[in-house]
Each structure stands twice: as C-alpha cells, then as structure tokens.
Amino acid sequence: MDAFELSDVSYHYADGRCAIENMSFSIQPGERVALVGPNGAGKSTLLHLLAGLFVPTKGEARIMGVLLTKKEAPKARRHVGLLFQDPDDQIFMPTVWEDVAFGPINYGYSEEEVRRRVGEAMAMTGIQGFEERVPHHLSLGEKKRVAMAGLLAISPDILLLDEPTANLDPQGRSDLVNVLEQRKETVVIATHDLAVAFHLAKRVLVLKKSILYDGDFAGLVEDEMVLREARLELPSFSRLMQAWAKDTGKSFSPPLTVQEALEVLRNNYCCRGNPEGRHEH
C-alpha cells in the first residue's frame, strides 16, 4: 500500500483560484520526498491536501489506502502529522507539556501512554525542562521544536513539513535537520532550502501548479530548464563548483552536499599526490 496515491488531482479554492492541477504521483512508505517550487506553486496547498485537510475538487487521492473524501478525511488525518511553517499556527495550549500532549489525548491514549509519548517526543526534540514554559515566550527555534514534538507524540506514519527550516538560525536549522534525519517515517518536506532538501530527501518533486519534475536531485541539478522555470537556486557551493567547472573546462555533475564538493575538488585538483588534501607551497 502506498503512503500517498494521487491520480489526476486538482484543487480550486472557493474564489475559483486553481492551486494545483492534474497532479498524479505516488509515494512509498518510508520514502523521503522534497517538494520545491516558486512561491505560489501550490506546495502548501498540496501539503494540506496530503494532510487530509483539503479534499480534491477533481481526481482521487489516497492516504495510506484511505480514499480522501469529506467523510473519510478524519480517518486519513490519523496517519499524518503536518508541521506548519509558522509554529504560532500550531501551538495552541497554555504550556509546552499540554501542547505536546494535545494530540495523544485527542486520540484517546491512556494517561500513562500520553506521559510516555510526551516524554519521548520532548527528549527527541531536545526540549526537556520546557514542560511548564509558556509557548508564546519561546524563541522561534524553540517553538519549532515544540511544534515538532507535538507531531512526534502522535507517532504518525507520515510527516509533512512545511518550510521546516524557514527563519531559523544556523544552529536551530541544524538541530531540526538532526531530529528529522533520525526519523524512519515517510517524510514530505516543502522547502526553498535546497541544501536541506539534498540532505534529507532522495526524491524531489518540482511544482508549479502541476509537476514539472519528479526524480532524483542529480537529474534536477542538470536540468537547467526546470531550475529556471521553477526559479530554483542551487546552494552557493554548488554554484561555485559549476562556475569553477566552466572556468577550468572540467566536467562533473554539480555537487549536492559539501562532502560531494570536497570529493570533486580532491579528484580534480588539490589532492593529486597529496592525500591530505593540503596545498604544497
């Protein structure tokens, strides 16, 4: 059974605006997929749809085998946890502990089970000791971790993340990436941050109302037309390496991570006869 199965799905808002059009794809359980595309490409709408919050206006969508209809939406939602871009949209309760416990209590777990889940989720996201803190007084990075803990506490089969690293400082971004890296669930990340997408996902869907590209990142970075159409910008080290390749006439695929860039440099320049990778003066 697929985690998601969309066939010819379109979604129109009440004012008639078409957000996504004739979209078909499926995502396997345990797969990690990045959704990228320009602003207004339909990423958030698609995430809402995949979370069972919107029902397609045309076509069929299945979440863990549950056909997404108005009636079945609550059942479908049980499989999915959605991390909102702005944690203030998500954090509702007066204390951190109560907010993380909100989902498990709603799903009717016993008191002991709720306490266990909340404790584990808070430990995983590194917010132990925040139990009695008032969420409104936390920093943005801390709020994101509280929101993430709220999702992990309900142990969804699928994690949907809307711009999880937006507005975070480098440390907050790296903390969140570390948390996500350890997850075994199906993960779908909508992001503009290609470096994070490279790091966390193997497959990428490029959106612009419909799907412009569906495949791996290696194929995407070489498809200049899609990159231009979707207004995507490779991370600075990839662009540097591309420029360097152009200058020196060398040929290699643009590296996706710093480690890959280092490998390219080692193979093409500085390491000839110098395994330590140091320049000899």
Partner: peptide
C-alpha cells in the same frame, strides 16, 4: 487566515470539537 491555519492545525492533531485533558 491565521484562524483558519490554527483550526487546520487542531484538526491535524485529532481535534474533533471535544476538549480533553488528563
């Protein structure tokens, strides 16, 4: 817009209109 987002966030964490606490 914000209110709609909050309501969606509640729904996605199993809220069905009943307030439950431990």
């Amino acid at each position: 817009v914000r209110a709609t987002n909050i309501y969606d966030a509640l729904l996605s964490r199993g809220y069905n209109g009943e307030m439950r606490t431990l």
